[in-house]
């Protein structure tokens, strides 16, 4: 499923990034490269800039200082690549309508024909184990279900780079385990995952590398500190 990268450039390449928020620095990063198929965990205390950096990497925030390349191109020019990379909120919001509407929404964005949409929605729902939810209203799902539907919405779009903000937070243990399995499956499929998390079991199971965000104000020192395992 993942489209071949345009070149051998890393999926993300960050250099001397500094994002100001007022007079303070909300997040900074000296250097970071993430390659296709890698899983990188962002860890650190709350307010250390993990979410901010994820959003920067998805072009949801800006402007910033430094260089940030997505597949070798500056983000602003990487619009054609945009749908390959999706950011998921800690608590994702779903659009009004059914679960099916939400999955189909992404496919309709790609201008897909109605029958292909139906097939893809079903396939994605099966992959994520949310087939039974398709007819349900997107409102009133549990945290775990919502997270999975949001993930499905991104995957249905064909995204192969996922920026996940605390995906397993605020859900019960069973849902956490199920989600970890799903994310692990995505990794083995070759998806690139960048995950901000406090969930050490997720880090242990998934991450190839760990990036630690320091608690000093908002300024985050990002170390290339090591693979845990």
């Amino acid at each position: 499923m993942p489209e071949p990268t345009l070149n051998d450039a890393p999926v993300f390449s960050l250099e001397a990034i500094s994002f100001p928020f007022g007079k303070q620095v909300a997040v900074s990063c000296d250097a970071l490269e993430i390659h296709a198929g890698e899983c990188v965990a962002f860890t650190g205390t709350n307010g250390s800039g993990k979410t901010t950096l994820l959003k920067l990497m998805n072009g949801l925030l800006g402007p910033f200082e430094g260089t940030l390349l997505f597949c070798g191109a500056p983000l602003s020019r990487a619009r054609a690549l945009r749908r390959r990379s999706v950011f998921l909120h800690q608590q994702p919001v779903l659009f009004t309508g059914t679960v099916r509407d939400n999955l189909a929404f992404a496919l309709k964005l790609r201008g897909m024909a109605a029958d292909t949409v139906a097939a893809r929605v079903l396939a994605t729902a099966r992959d994520l184990g949310i087939e039974a939810l398709l007819k349900r209203s997107a409102r009133g799902l549990s945290t775990g279900e919502t997270q999975r539907v949001a993930l499905g919405r991104a995957l249905a779009l064909g995204a192969d780079v996922l920026l996940l903000d605390e995906p397993t937070a605020a859900m019960d243990a069973a849902s956490q385990t199920a989600l970890r399995e799903i994310l692990f499956g995505l990794k083995t499929e070759g998806k690139t995952l960048v995950v901000s998390t406090h969930d050490e079991r997720l880090v242990t199971k998934l991450a190839d590398r760990r990036v630690v965000f320091s608690p000093e104000r908002n300024a985050a020192e990002v170390s290339k500190a090591g693979v845990e395992q």
Binding site: K55, N58, G59, L60, R79, R82, R83, S85, V86, F87, L88, H89, Q91, P92, V93, F95, F105, A106, L109, A150, R153, A154, L157
Partner: peptide
């Protein structure tokens, strides 16, 4: 988050 979701999904 609604607008951010739309942006990240690459909606026109």
């Amino acid at each position: 988050r609604y607008h951010e979701t739309l942006l990240t999904l690459g909606a026109s």
